[in-house]
Design a protein around this nucleic acid. Structure first.
Lengths: 166, 166
DNA sequence: GGATGCTTACTCGGATAGACAATGTCCGAGTATGGAGGG
DNA sequence: CCCTCCATACTCGGACATTGTCTATCCGAGTAAGCATCC
């Protein structure tokens, strides 16, 4: 499981925790979490491709949720990063080797693939049970306040007055 | 998920399907499944280390189950190959970044880690529900017979009469 | 004073290296077998 | 005929290359903001 999953889940949590729909830039999110921004950018792009986030360019640009946090499940985020590829991929080795059985015997999926698939389904189902909104609700009050405070500071020092340097 | 998981699950299935407790060599198992024997050997070793299989050296040597197939779950096999490492590893990035909260606020695990851990638990629980014996039972009669037939042939041509060549 | 256009710097986005683990392969140590020889 | 010993070849087991993916980074295209200018 890519490390990026943890990062973007935290990012999604923070974006959802900040009340206003103001976009938050990748650089700010990276600083807030103490992770390399260039790589985090790559992960957030995946969430944009998956339709979870919406990106905005230019100054004051950044990422915001594409839909209410209640409608974004953890499974959505995991799938966006890790891909929808199964944890277990059956290569049908039962059809290899000497004196294989006629294809008629392989009409139903092999038991091993079935077990793995069922397990993965309950895994995804469990991940689908929690939404980003649930993550915000279950977080300690202090953590939420920290995010809000930080976002306010961003807005204050927000558009880095370009006249200062030039 | 390593590919070897599929291989050793099929191997465990075959070993359990063959009634007698005669060991089956890695080379035979590899031929039966049409996979490289050298690499399969690596995987089977992991099962030996995990205490699932017992290896025997010398002619007519090979692998056999260390305990009844009813007591070997798919989860055991998966863990032997893939390791007991979690699918998701929380790096506690909430403790990084600027103005982190005092450690007191991080007494309870963060919600993201909790969700991922719960999902993984149901995943493992599901895998634990099926034993190698269940795999044998749920397999088509033809598949079982194929394995038994094949094992009988092994015993017939079994100890490659060394006098023939020398 | 208000609207317009330009400069600006900031943003995302994809293309590009490096590190680690999974994959695949090889050869050596150990062992039970099978037969030959001796009693 | 039975026991003992030895040579044998087969087995597992770990050490060694190769590949693919994840990790990390950089630089370019696009954009909205802010200011100067013009009406």
């Amino acid at each position: 499981m890519p490390q990026g999953v943890e990062w973007v889940l935290h990012c999604a949590w923070v974006i959802a925790a900040v009340p206003s729909g103001v976009p938050i830039s990748c650089r700010n999110l990276a600083e807030y979490h103490g992770v390399p921004d260039a790589y985090l950018s790559k992960q957030l792009q995946a969430l944009v491709r998956a339709g979870i986030l919406v990106a905005t360019g230019g100054p004051r640009g950044g990422f915001r949720l594409s839909r209410p946090a209640e409608e974004i499940t953890v499974a959505d985020v995991v799938e966006a990063i890790d891909g929808s590829s199964s944890l277990f991929f059956c290569t049908e080795i039962r059809k290899r080797g000497p004196d294989v059985l006629p294809p008629d015997c392989h009409r139903q999926a092999c038991g091993i693939a079935t077990v793995m698939r069922d397990a993965e389904e309950v895994w995804r189902a469990q991940l689908s049970r929690t939404t980003v909104a649930d993550l915000v609700d279950s977080a300690p009050q202090e953590a939420r306040q920290r995010a809000v405070r930080w976002a306010a500071l961003l807005k204050a020092s927000g558009p880095p007055a370009r006249g200062a340097s030039g």
